[in-house]
Each structure stands twice: as C-alpha cells, then as structure tokens.
Design a protein around this nucleic acid. Structure first.
Length: 277
DNA sequence: CGTCAGGTAGCCA
DNA sequence: TGGCTACCTGAC
C-alpha cells in the first residue's frame, strides 16, 4: 500500500468524467481501478490517495506508475485560473475542480473508444468486460477475480471471436485496429505532430473525428484536443451560440480559439457537469 | 413494439 | 463539404 499526496484532485470526478471505463465504485470515495494488467483498490481521504495494488514486496514502482496515471505532477491551478477567465466556463471548472486528465495507455484508449461508438456507458463497460474476459489474463485480487485488458501483441483474435464479445457492428473496427497495432501502423505515433497523429487515426477503419480526438486527448495526452460528442455539441450551442444549431466544424474552431492549449480540460469540465447534473 | 445511446462508413448531390 | 441511413446490442 502506498500513499500519495494530491492537490486539485478528486478521485471520483477524475474517474467519473467519462475518460475511462474500467473502474468500479465500492463505496463512497472507494474504487477498484484497472489499467491494462494493473489493478488497485484506491481511496481518497482529503488530499491523500491510498493505493493498494498488491505490489508489496516486488520491484514494481507503484509510486511512479500511479503518479503518472493520475497525472499528479501537472499544475492544475494554472490551467483552471487561465480557463476561468472565461466566465461562462468558470462554474463548470468549479463543479469539476478535482478532475485530472489521466495518462492512459494508447491501445486501451483506442480499443475502448471504438467500443463507445453509438453506445451507452453501461454497455461500453460491458463490452470491455466481455473483451477482457475472453482475451485477457485472470487476476486474483483481494478475493475477487478480474481480467487484464488484452495486450495486443499477444492476441490475434478473429472477427468471429471478437463478435462473441457482443460488440455488434464495432467488432470489425476492433479487428482492423488490432491488426494495425500488430503490423506497426501506430508504431511511434506519440512522436508525431498533433495533425499527423489526427490523420493517422482518422485514416483507420472505424475512427472518425470524435474517436480520433478522444484517443488524442486520453491516449496521447494531447490536452489541446476537443472531442465533440452529442452532449458537448448541445452544451456548446447553449453556452456559446445562443442555442442555435451550428456545425461541429464551427464548434471545433471556436474551442481552439477560446480554450487554446487547454481545450481538452475545458471539454472535460463541460462534459462532467453535463452528465452529472 | 419503437426509440435511443459519448459515431462512422458508405452513398449521393 | 453537407445530408442521409443502416448499424449490434441492451434498456426503457
């Protein structure tokens, strides 16, 4: 068990703001969180994060891993102060003031958000569970059984096997992108520019503007990307366009101008309040 | 039953 | 570009 000191951080907000799917609430402020083959029971007491990931006695650097995952070394005070100059956004920042943008593994984000296409959150979670149960490794943790997120070099599922995970029409997208992961299509993607990364993503089968921006924001930590889904579209229209119907392109350009390098954070603040209130 | 859910591909003008 | 529709699946 390790303890990490946190600032401008709220575990519940960070997990529930829609950026990740593999967590389960045990009780108030007490969660089980999974990342690839890692699992931890985590609870926040004030500004202390208590993390039990079962690594006592081995060489795994829990401190480094979870500090990075929860993005604890970024100064969110500056981000919030800068974005709060926008008075329309300010109440959204206050409402989700403990949100951090996680540093999630690329492949987990890629596959998870392909599963999110025209889907709802409970079913997205179920899709990921099915996929992990079929292709992942069994993990015994604190008396319960879990499954790791499948590691792409190790698995080469067929379309039929993927379809057994109840992924519906998304199965063909998953198969195609698993092949891309295996054949090096995404190799070193983290080294490219934002525009290059975007082009690589939207050129892949099943990835459009929304999923590409989610992968950029959550899987490549491009915090200037601004994914537009139906919720964000409605909310942006209400907040900044007098309720008028405008195109995604218009919203995209507006977000870049208005929020700049912090557009991704703005998106999360708006999204979190929109889905919880 | 129909509709809808954190979109995208395919097709058409 | 922009508009349209089908799409797996599960929940109302």
């Amino acid at each position: 068990m390790i303890k990490l000191e946190v600032k401008d951080f709220n575990l519940e907000q960070t997990l529930e703001c829609g950026q990740c799917f593999r967590f389960k609430k045990l009780d108030d402020l007490h969660y089980v969180v999974q990342v690839m083959n890692q699992i931890a029971e985590i609870k926040q007491i004030g500004n202390i994060l208590e993390i039990d990931d079962g690594h006592d006695g081995d060489t795994f650097n829990s401190n480094l891993f979870w500090s990075h995952y929860f993005d604890l070394n970024t100064d969110y005070d500056i981000i919030k102060k800068t974005l709060s100059k926008d008075k329309i956004l300010k109440p959204y920042i206050e409402y989700g003031s403990g949100i951090h943008i996680l540093n999630q593994p690329f492949e987990e984000v890629l596959i998870s958000f392909l599963m999110s296409i025209n889907n709802n959150i409970p079913n997205i979670k179920r899709c990921i569970e099915n996929y992990s149960r079929v292709f992942g490794d069994l993990i015994n943790f604190k008396g319960n059984q879990y499954y790791s997120f499948p590691d792409y070099p190790k698995i080469r599922p067929t379309l039929e096997e993927i379809q057994n995970c109840k992924l519906g029409f998304r199965a063909k997208f998953i198969v195609d992108n698993l092949q891309r992961l295996q054949n090096g299509y995404y190799h070193n993607i983290e080294l490219f520019t934002f525009e290059q990364q975007y082009d690589i993503l939207v050129s892949a089968y099943g990835i459009g503007p929304k999923v590409a921006n989610c992968v950029l924001l959550f899987g490549l930590h491009r915090v200037d990307s601004f994914p537009i889904d139906v919720w964000i579209k409605r909310k942006m229209q209400d907040l900044y366009f007098d309720g008028q119907e405008v195109s995604n392109k218009t919203i995209q350009q507006f977000a870049t101008n208005q929020f700049g390098e912090f557009a991704g954070y703005a998106q999360q603040y708006i999204f979190y309040k929109s889905i919880t209130k």
